[in-house]
Design a protein around this nucleic acid. Structure first.
Length: 525
RNA sequence: GAGAGCGUAGCUCAGUCGGUAGAGCAAAGGACUUUUAAUCCUUGGGUCGAGGGUUCGAAUCCCUCCGCUCUCACCA
């Protein structure tokens, strides 16, 4: 465990020492600086929603509503109250709130706090004489970042600010470290990732992004429930890292003295469950790939994979679109969103274009024109000699087409030789029943009509393994998976979506590290 | 893995031509009963990422290393 704060050296920083001193004084007042259960407190958002209950009672006892403070006009509430004659009084509901102290101002015998909870901020006013002397003494021991509970009455200050006028303070938790700068917040991207707890509190955009992530995942589950899908949890420790072509993390089980891999995909176990009769099955889970890190790649990331018996890749296309549209609905966003300077128009239906169409459109070459394509590949410095023509086509496609796909667009009907593990079209055997969904050059979803022929699957596995270099081939033949297929997996459509990338696109986050709470960082020095 | 940029007070940032380290916020002490990033007076706070080199003198120039960011490579 590394904690590099100054107290490692035994010397307290001036901020830490000051806070510890206040902690001792709080204890000396007979209060618990670490707080306790606090029943029946309301979220700040709910308290703010009760602002209509704040009324003004005239001297004759009749109640009238307050002026409208939320409009463009600035209201002089003090003058308004004076205009209603003497003997009037503001009345408002009793409320109980708790939160972190974000701002604090003292004006003589008045103390103003702004506190924040999960749902928002609200101002607290603590007037000397309206709380006990002990509570007013306590305000001198408060620091930015401390957690506090407040009982009080909801009302308005002279400037119209919705405020809880405190009658009782409840100390909840002392903070021993100073918070980030109160206006600029925490800016350093490294600190925002290492100390996500501070980022979430002091950068509200960050909190909102992660709350949206939760809503998106919830929405996906809800969409799939409408189609009677069953959610399962497969193993993350695999004896064979299969289901994708990626380098796995290696680990070891001591008692069994067994080499294990962290999973790189969810596929092979979900298909086993299809054999087992779970006809519509999915998992939302973490996979681990021992590869490079970039703004679009984190070594652990979240995928959803799903399999739908008796469906095919076209059903998967409809479902993919439904998942995304309903996720957008769930975070209360329109279908036209921004991605940096670019607009993405999610208005359904998403475009569907075949691989061949896009290839010929962007290169000006017929896909059968192998010599022309090889010539273009040389111009792109792709070194096509000795490669299978379809591999050259794929490389040219990645170079010329993918980055140009703003999307959302379904790229469908790949050359069969590029997708050996995909079922071929019954009518056009050179076509694989596959699509990928591209948005702004980013591959977001990948789906197939799944191969369920165990003999073909086994042969393709063997061919694939033969083609791999010894080092790359952590993969081995998954004979149990073949055995499962021999027991009969129904024809099915399968779909994979990168959840992190989906969240990036829907929340206009430029880096995957902005949508993963704790992305992998090097150990702090 | 390669290239570029960055790293200065707890936080956000300045730092000119190489000439004794700066501001705001935060902290400590004080004033103030309607503040809004409150204001005002006073005070303290630095291994300039680490190490080495050049120089009379280095935050500044050079080298190595550490960390972060971006681009590329890798990447069903």
């Amino acid at each position: 465990m590394t904690d590099s704060q100054p107290h490692d050296s035994g010397e307290l920083g001036v901020h830490q020492a000051a806070r510890l001193e206040k902690l001792k004084k709080i204890e000396a007042q007979g209060l618990d600086p670490w707080g306790h259960r606090f029943d029946d407190r309301s979220f700040i958002e709910a308290v703010r929603a009760r602002q209509g209950e704040v009324r003004y009672q005239l001297a004759d006892g009749s109640q009238i509503p307050l002026p409208e403070f939320d409009g463009p006009e600035i209201i002089d509430y003090k003058a308004w109250k004076a205009s209603k004659g003497p003997g009037g009084e503001e009345i408002g509901p009793a409320v109980r709130v708790a939160g972190r102290i974000m701002l604090m101002r003292t004006a003589g015998k008045l103390v103003f706090l702004n506190i924040r909870d999960l749902t928002g901020d609200i101002q607290i006013m603590i007037p000397k004489g309206h709380v006990s002397d002990e509570d007013f003494e306590l305000t001198k021991l408060l620091d930015f970042g401390d957690l506090i509970g407040v009982d009080g009455r909801l009302g308005r200050t002279n400037t119209g600010e919705l405020t809880v006028f405190a009658s009782k303070l409840h100390f909840m938790t002392k903070t021993l470290e100073p918070p980030p700068e109160k206006h600029a917040g925490l800016q350093d991207p490294e600190l925002r990732q290492r100390m996500r707890y501070l980022d979430l509190t002091y950068n509200t955009d960050s909190l909102q992004t992660f709350l949206k992530r939760t809503k998106i995942i919830h929405s996906i589950r809800s969409t799939l429930a409408k189609h009677d899908f069953v959610e399962v949890e497969g193993p993350t420790l695999h004896t064979i890292a299969g289901g994708a072509a990626a380098k796995p993390f290696l680990t070891h089980h001591n008692a069994l003295d067994m080499q294990l891999f962290l999973r790189i995909a969810l596929e092979l176990h979900l298909k086993r469950l299809m054999v087992g009769g779970i006809e519509r099955v999915y998992e939302i889970g973490r996979v681990y790939r021992n590869e490079g890190i970039s703004p679009r790649h984190n070594p652990e990331f979240t995928m959803i994979e799903l399999y739908w018996a008796y469906a095919d890749y076209r059903v998967m296309m409809d479902l993919t679109q439904q998942i995304i549209i309903e996720a957008l609905d769930a975070i209360g966003q329109g279908y036209k969103t921004h991605w940096g300077d670019l607009e993405i128009d999610f208005t359904p239906p998403f475009k569907r274009r075949t691989y061949t169409e896009l290839f010929e459109e962007h290169t000006g070459l017929k896909i059968a024109d192998h010599e022309g394509i090889a010539s273009l590949a040389r111009k792109l410095r792709l070194d096509p000699d000795g490669k299978h023509p379809d591999v050259v086509i794929s490389e040219v496609f990645e170079e010329k087409v993918e980055d140009a796909l703003i999307g959302p667009v379904f790229v469908t009907d790949y050359p069969a030789s590029l997708c050996p593990l995909t079922k071929r079209s019954a009518t056009q055997p050179e076509i694989a029943e596959r699509f990928e969904l591209f948005i702004h050059g980013m591959e977001l979803a990948n789906a197939y009509t799944e191969l369920n022929d165990p003999i073909l699957q086994e042969n393709l596995f063997k061919t694939q393994l033969q083609g791999m270099a010894e080092d790359d081939s952590m993969a081995r033949m998954d004979t149990d998976f073949i055995r499962a297929l021999r027991h009969g997996m129904p024809p099915a459509g399968g779909l994979g979506i990168g959840i992190d990338r989906l969240v990036m696109l829907l929340t206009n986050s430029r880096s995957i590290r902005d949508v993963i709470l704790f992305p992998l960082l090097r150990q702090e020095s």
